[in-house]
Write a protein that binds this DNA or RNA. Sequence first.
DNA 1: CGTAACATTGATCTGGATCAAGTGCCGTGG
DNA 2: CCACGGCACTTGATCCAGATCAATGTTACG
Lengths: 236, 236
Amino acid sequence: MLAATICVDCAVRDQSLCGSLTNSELHALNTLGRRRIVRRGETLIWAGEDNILCANLLSGVLKLVASSGDGREQIVGLLYPADFVGQPYPGQADFSVSALTDAEVCIFPRASFERVLTDHARMERLLLQRTLAALDEARSRMLTLARKSASEKVAGFLVDMATRAAATGCRGTPRGPVTFDLPLSRGQIADILGLTIETVSRQMTQLKTRGVIGLPGGRAITIVDRDALAARADPA
Amino acid sequence: MLAATICVDCAVRDQSLCGSLTNSELHALNTLGRRRIVRRGETLIWAGEDNILCANLLSGVLKLVASSGDGREQIVGLLYPADFVGQPYPGQADFSVSALTDAEVCIFPRASFERVLTDHARMERLLLQRTLAALDEARSRMLTLARKSASEKVAGFLVDMATRAAATGCRGTPRGPVTFDLPLSRGQIADILGLTIETVSRQMTQLKTRGVIGLPGGRAITIVDRDALAARADPA
DNA sequence: CGTAACATTGATCTGGATCAAGTGCCGTGG
DNA sequence: CCACGGCACTTGATCCAGATCAATGTTACG
């Protein structure tokens, strides 16, 4: 039957939380999980709503957005394939989750997922470890948002994206120039870094002018001098 | 013997992670834990060092500090009594932990604590829930740091402190003016909010001038009009 | 008391926001 | 095939919140 085979061809089977389960344990999830496509721009979870779902991200990129009462927004996290989405315990969601690119998720009803967690200590431990890592990352970003200059923010962001791109696979050699596509618009980069579109754009052209990066067009970016970029991100 | 009685008079026995353990289970911790005083200004954990300890905070206030290579600092979290301190899994600490006031902690060797955690699913779950809550808080603060104005930051901070002071107990009535002592210097408040001492000071005097708060002297503060303060913190 | 750390207040400077045009890049339709 | 319109991006001019620099005032403590 279809439900029993949902995990078999899962692209993130090993990297996701489910990787902690044995094949037989997967059966439980098989009956709970549903694949779902989320279109670019679509919102999967709305801030303020009750937590009703958990999910594993299979493909695409999602953003976690915090917003103030009067509409200012800040992207407080990005989610990549194999990342866990949502809150396993009851309560209201504090942040919205929406798709930056077309994405596919494997969805579980929250309550069922909570039960799976309590039944599978290994999975719960894995989630704890991921959550601790996410917390460290969030706290690091607090330093960036509060204390770094615009040029440090942009350089740091590009280093992060280059690292991630290298992890997946992209044109170019690891040591020399590397070219890849940013999955984000200038506006979204601004939302991540706590800047405006204009400032991001100006920093990018400045980096191009100084020969640190290249901007071949569209959302493509070439890292010409990774060390210079890293140095700008973190002035010792 | 002393070790066996360490938890008996623990002030935070019920609110801390240990509250999830039965009396008999506490015996295991009893043999592992050691009380320790941390003086105001003293550092308990240094960023970059290996995680070697976990702890429960018994009294006082600790700060979690992120710093950039060139010395800029940002307080990325405050820890209050009953809060958990440290990382239960191997690795390097990303942040320093030091005492804002004289404090007392109940310390466990990291490896032992990890073992306790794996043996006690209830405790692990509690830690997961706390970590998820801390993550939400960190993300909320990302919005504050990146998008809020100085006056919104200070007002929000004072509301938080007032709420916390009310939770413990302080002079004044809940609805009318409430007076309490801030456990932090202006400089430390600045480190939390991503501002400078001068800006924090100016915002405080402005709030006093407008009759929203009173500054009786020292670190004392009177909340005169809590609603006005909350409105300044979150302009709808 | 004296002094050292902390806090307020004032004057000035500046990085990044805001406001305002351009410019290039498709996709659509004529 | 090219004109058109919409969007994302770049570039320029100006403005302003908050940083920085510089005294001065205040509190706590030996």
